[in-house]
């Protein structure tokens, strides 16, 4: 497989509501399943939201539900695998809509690749991160820094991986992330003890995604689209 065979369009969406991007993903996946459209990588920061995996419809919370509501955090059921997680500003979320058959990739290979991409990103900041046997995501010194959940239908993926760059970590205290009561979450900023620009992390993510999956990445200029739509 060469880079000529794999191309992915990268859309940096900026700050978004979860529902908007969720609907977009579903459309893109449906389109890709039918052999249309393009392989796409959506990068975004969500406004505060707690999402639930398909098999875990009951939120695994550490606080009363009303507290979540009081924080203004939305709650969404999704079709991805995995358990409860939190997304919010300061977290880089990467959703890949990829036709794995076209890329000649297995699902597990793709999941490993997403984790490897984040490990590459963290290495750019001098952090040594790793996979963990039996617990998906990316870990730094026993603390979880990135969470992962996917849905695959007709070998087309949706959902992806979320890397904590500098989110409000107190929001993770509201839930049992991934359904694991003992998990300790961390972020790139916390590990570095300094602020890290999100734009730099996004750029690094795109670079390492291309490197790991041997694919060409085409950045789509979203500002032009915004202008075109007035």
């Amino acid at each position: 497989m060469t880079t000529d065979d794999r191309t992915i369009r990268v859309y940096d969406l900026g700050a978004t509501s979860y529902g908007d991007v969720h609907r977009l993903q579903r459309r893109l996946q449906a389109q890709r399943r039918e052999g249309a459209g393009f392989d796409s990588l959506l990068l975004t920061e969500h406004r505060p939201v707690i999402t639930l995996g398909r098999s875990h419809p009951e939120p695994d919370l550490r606080v009363p539900l009303q507290t979540i509501k009081n924080y203004g955090i939305e709650l969404h059921q999704t079709e991805r695998g995995g358990d409860i997680t939190y997304h919010g500003p300061g977290q880089l979320v990467a959703y890949g809509i990829v036709d794995l058959k076209g890329w000649n990739l297995g699902v597990i290979d793709y999941v490993d690749g997403l984790e490897e991409t984040v490990i590459g990103v963290l290495a750019d900041w001098g952090l040594r991160a790793e996979h963990r046997e039996g617990a998906r995501g990316v870990w730094v010194g026993g603390r979880k820094i990135a969470s992962l959940g996917l849905n695959v239908r007709r070998w087309v993926t949706m959902h992806g991986i979320a890397l904590n760059v500098d989110p409000d970590m107190s929001h993770f205290d509201l839930i049992n992330p991934c359904g694991m009561p003992d998990v300790e979450m961390t972020s790139l900023s916390a590990e570095m003890n300094k602020q890290v620009p999100m734009a730099d992390v996004s750029e690094s993510f795109v670079f390492h995604f291309g490197r790991v999956f041997s694919c060409r990445t085409e950045m789509v200029d979203m500002s032009e689209k915004r202008d075109a739509n007035g």
Partner: peptide, 20 residues
């Protein structure tokens, strides 16, 4: 479950750029 119309083309401009 979770299905949408197969022909439902993604229009980034309209899907993403709704007023916030």
């Amino acid at each position: 479950n979770w299905d949408v119309a197969p022909g439902d083309a993604a229009d980034f401009a309209s899907a993403l750029l709704r007023p916030e």
